[in-house]
Simulated assay, not measured.
Amino acid sequence: MQKLETGKTAKINFTKSYKNKKQLEKILLFSVAVILATFWLLPLLWIVSTAFKPESDVIDPIVRWIPKRVTLDNFRIIFSDKENAPILRWFFNSLFIALSHTILILLFDSLAAFAYARLKFKYKETIYWTMMATMMIPGVINFIPAYVIVDKLGWIDTPAAMIFPGLGGVFGVFLLRQFFEGIPKDLDEAALIDGASYFTIYFRIILPLSKPALMTLAVFTFMGNWNDFLWPILVTNDAANRTLPAGLAIFQGTYIHNYGILMAGALISAVPPILLFLLGQKYFVKGIALSGLKE
């Protein structure tokens, strides 16, 4: 009887110790997440704070996170200076280019991923892994041949120069193929028996079930294109044809000492990617979690 009670006591103590260990792990992970989030948020909060400060408060040696005087003058200046900083033109250039690029990436990469995940053809794996190997090549290496091609096509100073060259990336193919392979193939077989074609399976079965992965790729693609700086600088000569990040480089040269105006421009540039992530956060997290899983 005493041995039984001793065994129960030991089991209870082990259970408590295990629960305490799990709680400690959760606390440590939460603490690390809070620290990382703080490091990410502090620069953003400083941009917001500086954007609404008058210049006299910006250069004040005393650091104030909350402005003593809130002003919209910085935004009025950048929206009114259409000659040196056509920021609305840059904004809509970026929006059109990023949206067009994202839609085309989703179309082409999903078609390619469907072929690699569902179809059978000769040398499929060899071709696929050869494509994946190109992900190890730095993108800047392609700048010179890509620029020559864009120049020969007459796309310099046009949105096409910033929409089409990046469509050959294979990251989206990899991401979507991993997700597509997690969808049961029994659905395909049932559809084929009912007389459906592969395009019908792609549009009516695979795509509706792949919203998380598609949203994840859309977020990555949109943010990558929206934040691109070097390539738009190379392929645009007229300032009016530039995207917002590339335009802000000129903008910085114009107002090199006016940090309030610079932060106002940076804040405008940061709003669309943040909104996109917040709107698609549920699908984004789910897509990342499921893309590495297979049936």
Rank of each mutant, 00 (worst) to 15 (best):
L24I: 02
G139M: 04
L29P: 00
I77N: 08
K53G: 02
A160T: 14
T9M: 11
S17T: 15
T9D: 12
G168C: 15
I183N: 13
W226N: 07
N84M: 03
H101Q: 05
G168W: 15
E83R: 08
L276M: 09
I77F: 06
T243V: 04
F180V: 15
T236S: 13
P159R: 13
E181P: 12
T158H: 04
L24Q: 06
I193Q: 01
F251S: 01
P145E: 03
D238M: 11
D81A: 02
N142Y: 14
D73S: 12
I274V: 08
V48S: 08
A33H: 07
I274D: 00
I163F: 15
A37V: 09
A10Y: 09
F14I: 14
L4V: 00
D81I: 04
K19Y: 14
K21M: 14
F222M: 03
N142D: 05
F39N: 00
L192D: 04
R76F: 10
K152V: 05
F143V: 10
L230K: 05
T134K: 02
P145I: 12
L29R: 03
L192Q: 07
L72T: 14
N84E: 03
A246G: 11
F171V: 15
E295T: 10
A190G: 11
A115V: 13
V48D: 08
M131Q: 11
F174A: 12
G287W: 07
N227E: 06
G265K: 05
M263R: 05
D186S: 15
A133W: 00
F179Q: 03
T158E: 04
R64N: 15
L36F: 12
I149P: 00
F284W: 07
T130Q: 04
T71L: 09
I47A: 03
K286P: 03
I201T: 08
N227T: 10
T9Q: 13
I12S: 02
S94F: 02
L175H: 15
E55T: 01
K8W: 02
T216S: 08
E25F: 08
F92H: 03
L95F: 14
